[in-house]
Design a binder for these strands. Sequence first.
DNA 1: ACGGTGCCTATTGTCTACAGTAGAGCGGTC
DNA 2: GACCGCTCTACTGTAGACAATAGGCACCGT
Lengths: 251, 251
Amino acid sequence: MSSPVHDTGAGTPGPPGTPPSLVDYAANEIRRMVLRGTLVPGERITEPQLSQQLGISRPPLREALRLLEREGLLLQQPRRGVTVMPLTLHDVYEIFTLRRDYEELAVALGVPVREPERLQRCRVALQLMERAARAGDEVAWSEHAFEFHTSIVALSGHRRLERAYRSLQLQMELCMTMNRQARVHEDFRGDAARHRRLLDLVEAGDPGAVVAELRVHGDRTFLDGIEVRLGGHTEVSLAWLEQVRAETAHR
Amino acid sequence: MSSPVHDTGAGTPGPPGTPPSLVDYAANEIRRMVLRGTLVPGERITEPQLSQQLGISRPPLREALRLLEREGLLLQQPRRGVTVMPLTLHDVYEIFTLRRDYEELAVALGVPVREPERLQRCRVALQLMERAARAGDEVAWSEHAFEFHTSIVALSGHRRLERAYRSLQLQMELCMTMNRQARVHEDFRGDAARHRRLLDLVEAGDPGAVVAELRVHGDRTFLDGIEVRLGGHTEVSLAWLEQVRAETAHR
DNA sequence: ACGGTGCCTATTGTCTACAGTAGAGCGGTC
DNA sequence: GACCGCTCTACTGTAGACAATAGGCACCGT
């Protein structure tokens, strides 16, 4: 049996330095597989194979799979195993609307920032984004962009909100993964400028202005080309997609 | 070993008729224990004892515990077991703000109701509420009140939103459980009338009016007497509590 | 008498093994 | 030749056993 290397940090708990549990290890690893496209939506995942691949046994793997199902990345059908969650256009609608709502709630609750040290996290993330943009490292840029948005949400000091937001981000990444082929995303400069502007407004302390900027901000990135790939359309979703298109047209 | 009777319905999945998995059984059972106060916050839960009590083995029990931890009802500390989540005033703040936000988002997305058959679920829940009110059955009333609010959220057709809302409701129930001693909740008539009014506004199709009603509506029930019982105060929470008090004073 | 250290027990984390079921492939029958 | 039923296999669901750790307790030293 190959030794599980325990390289990734623990999911949530545990004092630093302690080896993360195999459940966390498996959850992180499977997340990466899903988000990198190693596991394709619709493809059936069998526990024996995956447990052998990860070098762990089935019980901790099963716990990890349950968690990921709860996070919305996997789909578990009783007695029929798990598959990567196949996303419909309606799912994209749900993810997008929830994300916007979370961000706006966070701004409403947190934006005249009460504890200035929280801004530090935003600033650091933004700097890393800009550095990645200069280096042309798209992967790092994306990663830090997620962290930046999370840090904005975290300004609210709302742990549940931040947690829910992080979970949703994973599903956004899933959307982007599905679009990777079609994705031509290189406007680093413009994006970095928009994020910088966002942070400026936050520091200025005007929630309304931040929300307005967020509405325009909305990353169309993960929407481009998605409708050709997805089935399960509903009218509400299509109508909504048109609306989003219109709103973000003048970027 | 007592046979697990599998009486409660499955958590989420599975075609009807199939016996729910032991994981779902355990999760439901533990939820009930927590929400009925059988398990007290801070009290340590040991897996062997609980597995014997439920008549199942530890692996499915552990999966259930992980799920409940994710739902925010339990707190898992590595190598130190699980306890019922102890709620601080800040947690109540988080739950309350999220709940309001979820409801308002659902109304914004769903209230000019597109698919009228969804209203049926609201009407049924409301009728059951009113019946329970007439019978003076507080437990049933509370249960159907939760279902009514869920059905309102479900008008949006937003599965993720509904799911998140249900999870949050459990934590609201936990709040109420902690307050049960101090709770004197008997204004069935007034509450029923308010819920009826809410549904009328929904059917009228005016999202703004519904949101306004919801703001006034806000169940103070689970807030009464909570601050005396809870530690971990932060300024934001106390300030917010005062605000809520003021807003809902004129009920 | 008090503090430190080592052992010991109970509990968590993990693994291997067993039972039951769903799907696939094959053969039989109409 | 096509359709239905059976068997057989592989996987999921569950159980019980093993390993490792943390907290408690007693004993020893000062």
